[in-house]
Design a protein around this nucleic acid. Structure first.
Length: 289
DNA sequence: ACTAAAGCCTGGCTGC
DNA sequence: TGCAGCCAGGCTTTAG
């Protein structure tokens, strides 16, 4: 059993996908659809592929072969023949399902890719935030949204020196900065909170004021929290639900969604404060500015 | 140039 | 039981 064995019927996430979740979907797609040909597609939600049109999109995808699956940050890259890439962002609630033609279509099925093995890949997205775009491979690094992304967190380019430079000159809080994919790649609201907790740094600390020592701690924490999540996602797969993150996964969160609960390290009550429309969780005792 | 906040969305949950 | 209203948050756009 490899780390990413899963029920082949469904490829979806329950939680908002951050980099570890996207990585999991990518590995699943690699096993399911690479080598398959798209015999037809049915884009049902126009804005999913805007500013392209459904007619154009379906025409371009018809008879395309999927030659590989990649990832850049939280973007899924479905590589097609003809040196083209179907770039997909799941945003909040985007999910892929791999099913037979007899399976019932789920709610919010906004794009359906019929494959040459009588299976179909369904993109569903309850909140309709997800987006898809077809680009030439040579233009991928110039594509808006991808062009300015920070280096991959597990790569050599995401060094301590890089992080130090990324933080310098910014008066934003660390929490805000960690969510900026052009500064630090891969974290969302959950893992940003978890990384700061591991590094014992307040989410309200000002980026440019962080000491080198604490920057180093943050650097390690970011990688640790992402790596930990990747390692533990498998254990959270529920067979009856196919592929979702339930209580077993949430249990690993140390501060996120734990307002009022005792800190796992010091017992102080975890606090929550909303800012910029989203919740920040932290331990007021362990995490200092 | 930089930063903060609004907007996009729908379904689950809470409280009346 | 119904229903209003809050809440979830990745990213883009707008405003300051």
């Amino acid at each position: 059993m490899s780390l990413f064995d899963f029920d082949p019927i469904r490829i979806q996430t329950q939680r908002m996908p951050e980099l570890p979740e996207v990585e999991h979907v990518v590995r699943a797609l690699q096993r399911m659809v690479v080598g398959r040909r798209i015999v037809a597609s049915d884009i049902r939600l126009a804005k999913l592929i805007a500013p392209s049109t459904r007619k154009t999109f379906n025409r371009k995808l018809k008879d395309s072969t999927i030659v590989g699956i990649g990832r850049r940050g939280k973007f899924i890259l479905i590589e097609l023949d003809g040196n083209r890439v179907l770039v997909v962002h799941l945003r909040m609630t985007g999910k892929f399902l791999y099913q037979t033609l007899d399976d019932p279509l789920p709610k919010h099925a906004h794009a359906i890719f019929y494959l040459d093995n009588d299976q179909r890949l369904v993109f569903r997205d309850q909140r309709q935030f997800g987006v898809m775009k077809l680009v030439a491979r040579s233009r991928l690094t110039k594509t808006k949204g991808i062009r300015d992304l920070a280096p991959e967190p597990f790569g050599d380019d995401f060094s301590l020196g890089y992080l130090r430079d990324a933080l310098s000159g910014s008066r934003r809080t660390l929490k805000t900065l960690l969510l900026d994919q052009n500064k630090v790649l891969g974290l969302g609201n959950i893992y940003a909170a978890e990384a700061l907790f591991r590094a014992r740094i307040s989410p309200f600390a000002i980026a440019s004021e962080l000491s080198l020592k604490r920057t180093a701690r943050l650097h390690v924490a970011i990688r640790d929290v992402l790596n930990f999540a990747v390692q533990h996602i498998k254990g959270s797969i529920s067979l009856e639900d196919g592929f979702s993150y339930g209580a077993a996964f949430e249990r690993f969160w140390q501060v996120y969604d734990r307002e009022g609960e005792p800190c796992v390290k010091c017992g102080a009550r975890i606090r929550r404060e909303r800012h910029g429309g989203r919740s920040t969780y932290w331990c007021p005792k362990c995490q200092r500015t």
